[in-house]
Design a protein around this nucleic acid. Structure first.
Lengths: 166, 166
DNA sequence: AAAATTATTGAATAAATATGCAAAAAGCTA
DNA sequence: TAGCTTTTTGCATATTTATTCAATAATTTT
């Protein structure tokens, strides 16, 4: 499946370059042998929270925009992944375990993306509970987390089925 | 010349309300006896540096966008319950989001009412998980919260069903 | 105040973006 | 792997936004 990759390339393109329209983006992707249609880009951009904004030069450009609700914008390139140890599904919720002391940072970061799919997070010292919104499937929630933290699931290898006393 | 006034009304409208398209804006202006055409709005919005962005609820809205590079912006428009930002149903639980640092205060307050309907709460920094007791319906739980925090649901407008890529 | 210059606007239309729907692809389960 | 479910995608098109061009209104100059 190439969607995840396409999303990350799109994200990189619009932050690095000045993309003024979906058509331009389409061509840039094509130059990287990623082919899709404008319709798909429209959906991808929505999912990334990207919008077409006025670029100080009298034109337009795409950019990842902060959401209303006035959340706090974060520096884009914080290194979060190394602190994540584990990610587990539980009762329709998702538990992420981090290095000690890193849960609230990470949860704060996740919160601030204001993703629709995530109703909220709660963090202890080294554990974050991710609460997906009603109607969001498990895999939708995971896809969303992957967008927020690209590479998450590659990084954190799926934990093997474990032993339980019974 | 009415342009200056129109611009300021537009600015106020898009920051106060959720304007999803220029057509909607056009009608709101008309209701204030400011009449112009969509073409003019397109130009005005460019001039204001306003863009149509993803609103976190699955839709689009206009907002004045900062130049990327991002600085910190905080919400400014809550009055009655100044610390509560958001309330969402999720998996039979209820998630309340507050301003940073206010979750445990608020949860403590809720806890101390000792309402039967609420089995317990868990608070992080800005998120509270409300766990209703078994057998308590969603709407019972909401009614209960409304009793504890009068005005809660008026204040925090229900979020619309959102868009999820699938 | 008339003429000359500059700015604003609407109508029409071009350009760009979003979406319903059906089909294809990817995941899952047994 | 076959059958079933969910997700992704393109096509066609609806919706939305930007722009061209001509006209009108405001502003400045003489």
């Amino acid at each position: 499946m190439q969607k995840a990759k396409r999303l990350s390339v799109i994200e990189k393109l619009i932050t690095d370059e000045n993309i003024s329209s979906q058509d331009v983006l389409l061509r840039k992707l094509r130059a990287r042998s990623i082919r899709c249609t404008q319709a798909t880009l429209s959906r991808d951009l929505r999912q990334l929270g990207a919008g077409r904004i006025v670029d100080g030069k009298g034109g337009y450009k795409y950019a990842i925009t902060d959401n209303p609700g006035g959340r706090i914008s974060m520096p884009a390139n914080i290194q979060l992944l190394p602190v994540i140890r584990d990610i587990v599904d539980a009762k329709g919720l998702i538990v992420i375990r981090t290095l000690p002391g890193n849960a609230s940072n990470t949860a704060f970061y996740i919160d601030n993306t204001s993703r629709y799919e995530i109703a909220g997070t709660i963090a202890g010292d080294d554990t974050i509970l991710i609460i997906p919104r009603d109607g969001i499937s498990n895999s939708q929630a995971h896809t969303c987390l992957e967008i927020i933290l690209p590479g998450l699931h590659e990084q954190v290898k799926k934990s093997k089925p474990g032993y339980v006393n019974q």
